[in-house]
Design a protein around this nucleic acid. Sequence first.
DNA 1: GCCGCAGTTTGACTTACTTCAAGCAATCGC
DNA 2: GCGATTGCTTGAAGTAAGTCAAACTGCGGC
Lengths: 258, 258
Amino acid sequence: MDIPVAATAPIPAIAPREKAPARGRQVACASCALHPLCHPLSAAEGWLAAVQTRRRVARGERLFRAGAPQTALYAIRAGFLKACAPNPDGSRFIVRFLLPGDAPGLDAFATGAHPTEAIALEDSVVCEVPRYRAEILAEGIPSLGAQLRQLLGRELARSQEHAALLTRHAAAERVERFLLDLSRRWGERGYSRTAFRLPMRRQEIGEHLGLTMETVSRIFSDFQSRGWIRLTRGGVEIRGGPLLAECRSADAGAGPAV
Amino acid sequence: MDIPVAATAPIPAIAPREKAPARGRQVACASCALHPLCHPLSAAEGWLAAVQTRRRVARGERLFRAGAPQTALYAIRAGFLKACAPNPDGSRFIVRFLLPGDAPGLDAFATGAHPTEAIALEDSVVCEVPRYRAEILAEGIPSLGAQLRQLLGRELARSQEHAALLTRHAAAERVERFLLDLSRRWGERGYSRTAFRLPMRRQEIGEHLGLTMETVSRIFSDFQSRGWIRLTRGGVEIRGGPLLAECRSADAGAGPAV
DNA sequence: GCCGCAGTTTGACTTACTTCAAGCAATCGC
DNA sequence: GCGATTGCTTGAAGTAAGTCAAACTGCGGC
């Protein structure tokens, strides 16, 4: 079922309808959020394979459910997921979209149970380090504890930034920043900042940004009519306007993911 | 200028215009977020006083500035602060209001510098544990590392919940939940859930909830005309409606702060 | 091939919140 | 005590985004 990324595609990062994550879409272990936990000493040690296991998550499947106990730390290896906070009234808030290298479910450190759930938007592969294993490692290797704190701190800072975005009222600005955020994150992973996939539905973008899907759709149409973006099947290409400027300038100054 | 809390006042938790935090308003060390770090062994050990120091922060003063390096972990001992994310355009987002027992500035674990700043809304007292000290302790006492992760996880979960609130559109619901959140947090600290201070301005409530101060004011007036709340000088009393119901029912089931 | 479905786009209308503005209340400094 | 300042309230008008609804698109199944 492995579909190779077609060399003839004008936008390498966008491959329509792939059933299984392409090998080329995987993030390098060195840039993975869990790298320090997963490879705590040197890669030469040889016992590392025992620490983490791989797990496939089919499109629509949950990596973990809301309310489930935290049994492991996860890192997305390939694919695309959403971190979801279901509301009692049936609606839901999408906390974040998860790209290769991201570590979902860290909010479970609060109580030991997952307050949010992670659902695959396309077939994905996830690395798993059992939590007890991570804790043992963290006790033995002090720098790991610091790495975990940094990871948690980053999630916290990001969440606060997103909350700040939601208080800025202009819907177009939210969508613009959403695209820039995805662009930056793909860029950090070595992919194109100006052409990338959007495997989520309009509805889900709305649930992430506090907008209705109609508003998201209208803004996309508006951006397209201005020539700022081009919408493709399941993807977007940044072509101009303030979006492109930001993508380019940020490319120059982009350092490694801190 | 110290005005004693009048015995005749119907709302004991509200004292107008106090210049210095009252002793009675301090949170017990045992319920403080930093307690495990500050008192890592038993209180009988005697060397604990060296770990944490006290600091007074006058109303309007900053506990730490945005961009400043993270030199310490903090816990509010008495008073009231706001955690602020300044925007480049001069506006700002109030991430959170800080009550006694809260630990501000944990988002600095992301980069080692504070992305947000903490500003006192009234004269406050803060406990401080130097960061290097905390890291040394965490290395020596594994459970401390876990405690820190729990603390960070809680902040993360809370921030995500707040972001979720901001995507729910009804302004009245945001204000209602804001009051309930404060009520719950005062309750966890042993104070009245139905009568508490609101030392922040309408403007600041708006900056926390993504509303204008006019909207906040109108909703307060509306709640008051319905008999749900009574606004007092610098405080609020929950008197009826769905707010009161929630406060009472939650009082019954309220456990210790996890 | 055609049909049906799920997701998207677009349009018309409505409304909740913002904006602008004026008036009020409490506090502070002289 | 009195005026200035700051924060709060209230009103009127405008607007951005929501709601409801219909049409369109691509895809999968038969």
